[in-house]
């Protein structure tokens, strides 16, 4: 295992990290697309992609090539600047989100004691991107999708933050490395045992925050055709798509670190445990998508404001009291 902490120069380290992350995001994006389609297929009792490569493993590569090769079309009357800024703005902050995540012992991009805050702050960029995409494409469906995306993302950031705060109260730090360090290898030593409600709320909000079914109202296919990315073609759509999957990886990684002990695991701790836990969470997210109908837009907000925020607040209060008492 290469010790990343041993590389002295911060600039070099950052460049290396970003290259490594680009590869990581790209590969994981391809893998997740394949996984999603296979899971969808098997749940629906069909094989899923099967034609390109053995059992269709190369299908995502073919898809990516197709997306890259497609003509980029901007609709007439669209605000070209905003229209093309949006997908880039949606994708670029993803790199920052990955930097503080500790994938393994000393395997992280930037060591910062405010890692959690960095992730939460930069995750907010996505809202802006969706908003610009919907507004810039001069499409009514896009506009409705953007309006939905903004109100949903803004609403769900609150309970997300509150649950994260509960964990931070317990551990007394916002450094992801330290949070991992404070948890043990075995499941009963993880934060999920002490904070089960926070975990459930965090995970549900994460599903909503990444616009995944059953909370995929900004792109609700049967209502808004495709929502904010209705007008995007080729890699414009591809970047949104990749950003969605990358964000899924981020939220699942954060959930893994906060609640499931990060890279620590029984027997031999290491990055593999991190990947196993992260992919388990991703699988559950996909499982949700292929099982449930879509929640109506106002219900999505109601769930957040009337259930998650009060529950998260109560949980936070309880945590604070217990931390103070013990």
């Amino acid at each position: 295992m290469m010790n990343f902490a041993a590389i002295p120069e911060p600039a070099l380290r950052l460049v290396l990290c970003i290259v490594a992350l680009a590869v990581f995001i790209g590969l994981n994006g391809l893998l997740l697309v394949y996984m999603e389609r296979k899971i969808a297929g098997h749940i629906q009792r069909r094989p899923g992609p099967f034609e390109v490569g053995p059992h269709g493993v190369l299908t995502p590569v073919a898809d990516a090539l197709k997306l890259v090769g497609k003509q980029l079309v901007a609709p007439e009357g669209a605000d070209k600047w905003l229209f093309w800024t949006a997908p880039i703005l949606s994708f670029m902050p993803i790199f920052v989100l990955f930097l503080p995540i500790e994938f393994g012992p000393n395997l992280f991009g930037v060591e910062t004691n405010l890692g959690l805050l960095l992730i939460l702050a930069f995750a907010g960029f996505n809202v802006l991107a969706l908003c610009l995409a919907g507004w810039g494409s001069n499409n009514k469906w896009g506009l409705l999708g953007a309006a939905r995306a903004v109100s949903q993302s803004v609403a769900y950031e609150i309970p997300l933050l509150l649950t994260v705060l509960a964990v931070a109260f317990m551990t007394g730090t916002l450094d992801l490395g330290e949070i991992t360090a404070m948890q043990g290898a075995w499941p009963w030593q993880w934060n999920v045992v002490t904070q089960p409600l926070a975990f459930v709320i965090f995970f549900t909000c994460a599903v909503a925050e990444t616009n995944r079914a059953p909370f995929d109202v900004p792109e609700a296919e049967s209502e808004l055709t495709a929502g904010f990315h209705t007008e995007y073609s080729g890699m414009g759509f591809g970047l949104f798509f990749l950003a969605e999957y990358a964000e899924m990886i981020v939220v699942c990684s954060v959930a893994t670190i906060l609640f499931l002990g990060g890279w620590k695991g029984p027997f031999i701790s290491g990055p593999w445990w991190f990947l196993v836990k992260m992919y388990a969470l991703l699988t559950i997210m996909m499982w949700f998508r292929w099982t449930y109908p879509r929640v109506r837009f106002d219900q999505v907000l109601n769930i957040c404001w009337k259930w998650f925020i009060p529950l998260a607040l109560a949980n936070l209060l309880l945590t604070a009291v217990l931390v103070k008492v013990f």
Binding site: H42, R46, P47, W287, Y292
Partner: peptide, 21 residues
């Protein structure tokens, strides 16, 4: 009921496929 729904799709996930390739 949400858990039950997951159970149904989970069961079919492991079941054999019914389509003709």
């Amino acid at each position: 009921s949400l858990v039950v729904g997951l159970g149904v799709t989970g069961k079919y996930f492991t079941d054999k496929q019914v389509t003709v390739h």
